[in-house]
Design a protein around this nucleic acid. Sequence first.
DNA 1: GATGAATGAGGTTTCATTCAT
DNA 2: AATGAATGAAACCTCATTCAT
Lengths: 204, 204, 204, 204
Amino acid sequence: MARPSVEAQRREQILRAACEVIRDKGINALRVSDVAARAGMSTGAVHYYFETKRALTHAAFEWNFTRSLARREVILTRRTSPSERLRAFVSSYLPGDDETTAAWHVWAETWVEALHDAELRALNERVYEEWRSMITEIIRDGQADGTIIDRDPVLLADTVVSLVDGLSMQALVGSRHMTASRMHAVCEHLIDAISVSSGRVKVS
Amino acid sequence: MARPSVEAQRREQILRAACEVIRDKGINALRVSDVAARAGMSTGAVHYYFETKRALTHAAFEWNFTRSLARREVILTRRTSPSERLRAFVSSYLPGDDETTAAWHVWAETWVEALHDAELRALNERVYEEWRSMITEIIRDGQADGTIIDRDPVLLADTVVSLVDGLSMQALVGSRHMTASRMHAVCEHLIDAISVSSGRVKVS
Amino acid sequence: MARPSVEAQRREQILRAACEVIRDKGINALRVSDVAARAGMSTGAVHYYFETKRALTHAAFEWNFTRSLARREVILTRRTSPSERLRAFVSSYLPGDDETTAAWHVWAETWVEALHDAELRALNERVYEEWRSMITEIIRDGQADGTIIDRDPVLLADTVVSLVDGLSMQALVGSRHMTASRMHAVCEHLIDAISVSSGRVKVS
Amino acid sequence: MARPSVEAQRREQILRAACEVIRDKGINALRVSDVAARAGMSTGAVHYYFETKRALTHAAFEWNFTRSLARREVILTRRTSPSERLRAFVSSYLPGDDETTAAWHVWAETWVEALHDAELRALNERVYEEWRSMITEIIRDGQADGTIIDRDPVLLADTVVSLVDGLSMQALVGSRHMTASRMHAVCEHLIDAISVSSGRVKVS
DNA sequence: GATGAATGAGGTTTCATTCAT
DNA sequence: AATGAATGAAACCTCATTCAT
């Protein structure tokens, strides 16, 4: 008699709780009981939906990724110039508001966990592929209309992605040096450098 | 008769073992007994030198950082051109040989642990300051002799550091896309872009 | 379906076991696993009800006191003469049967533990206050009807309580000198001495 | 070449330290390393003089007893009246100054430890026998010269000893009710009661 | 005689997981 | 579907004791 929607809803409730706990305490310190408490249910219930703790955290990681990508969809379908889309995209990825920051925290934990977990490595592979191809797409669009320099688009995408990742990690760790405005300045500078000049300041 | 401080030696032995365990299993899965076994002693002995597991891992993080910085000293004192020094420095930081890779693993764990630990945040702050200032120094040298473009050297340093960090993380996680040669290509491209042209291919 | 609070029942089961272990081995040698075994459950279960070993032993001390006082209630409501009530009360307190002896053992451990523990000192204060006031009450009744001598009732109560405590300690420690009959003789003698003569032998 | 006096001196130094630790933390919390630290030597040295921790604490208990008895010797040889000697003796036993209080703490720990240790029970037996006979002696002297009532001197001695023990325990535990003056008042009252009247206030 | 580094057995505590209800 | 009591396998940490120096 169980309506499937109830199950799905419960699962999401648990995953959301799990991500919150990961954000607040990290997976290292995450306890199934913490997740249960935050989701407002018993540990038994959590185990009813997720066989093991590992299954739970992996699902949470995946859920976090999926939602992050979903939040960017809007940007990609905008009718602005490729260069503007790239700026918007990058800007939306840098940890700014609580939601992005939370997502980044979970992300960071996923990476490190992935260092010792093949399943998570596969997840990272899958998601980065998508993330990278989105950027590559924008860059190709820019090259097509002549607003982005004519270099290997994949190399340019790698540059953008890595830069954002590196900046974000330091910002998350709370480096007083790496402020939001500094992150944006660095990114702006890079995007300027790969944009075809039309009065803008460029690298050289 | 006091034996000639076996202490420093023992501590190093333990810290080395701890870093190896962190590299292989992560802090999450690190057991004091693993460290003891790898160091060839009892858990009691480990606790004789480090009060708690936390003290042990923090000391290991610090030790890892210290050694990494020490390994770069040579590069900085070379008599090559700033641009070459920058290339050498970056190249030595990208995860290549086992030693660098191991250091990166421990590093990555430190970051994520730092998200929830003020002490480690302070450590990160301290080390990144040094790391960043080394790069800034090289860039300033390059600007002084006209081989590096005349832009805010701190911003350029941030770009280099973040790029290396971002690329390395993906490489460590085992992304099949992010190969050693790709990392190097991306870095080369960036360094070219910020070098003053003298025949080299540049961004624009 | 919430089972009808198995909790109170389990807690009591554990506390009883803890008191038995304290009686047999002392707190010094008490192991949580001993308590668990005696209560017929796992150590995990004990920790499910009592956060720490300290919380467990303190609760056991309190439980022991509470039960001891409860066992005396009957005596106080008897319709006998104050002097007889006093004799009965004192007699019931001297370590005689297994139950009283067990209570005394736990008691003794509490005292010594209290020497270094403020929480237990407070517990001792609370219980002794009650214990002393019970005796004082009886003495006042005796003075009211002229069967107990007209001296400061608190001082008399202190005398009775201390005497019982001191005798009991020696008896518990197993002094061959301090037999049950000797304890009773000493107490009888004291009570005679503070009773108003009506043919009984008195101190002077 | 070891002068035996050095050994004896070292042992005493350790025993004194052990008693101080017992006073401050109790045997439960006593660590061999605490004793070593307080005695200003290594744990190895402590073990050189005492095979096991048990041997150490037992020796400390014995030492404490011996010294306590020694301190009373003076009183017994005084040329005052038996009644005065009794008062002086009792008064010197109630926990007053730091030295007596410290001795009492160790004492209390001994009792409770003795509940589960035959060797300590024997020690208690031996010492109490001595303690009791000292009091009995005084009482007999008093009865001989007619200043103490003609009752079984052993019973009277038991009364005195138990009273002092019971009062002291409560005082040590820090009962706010059981002050020094109250202890003395109770004891005075008892001694008055067993003294033959010659103007003094008596029980009846 | 003395040191203090090292051991290792054992204790408390944690927590994922199970299961009767 | 859900609860939460209970388990039990570890894990960290302590500390008496040993022993090379």
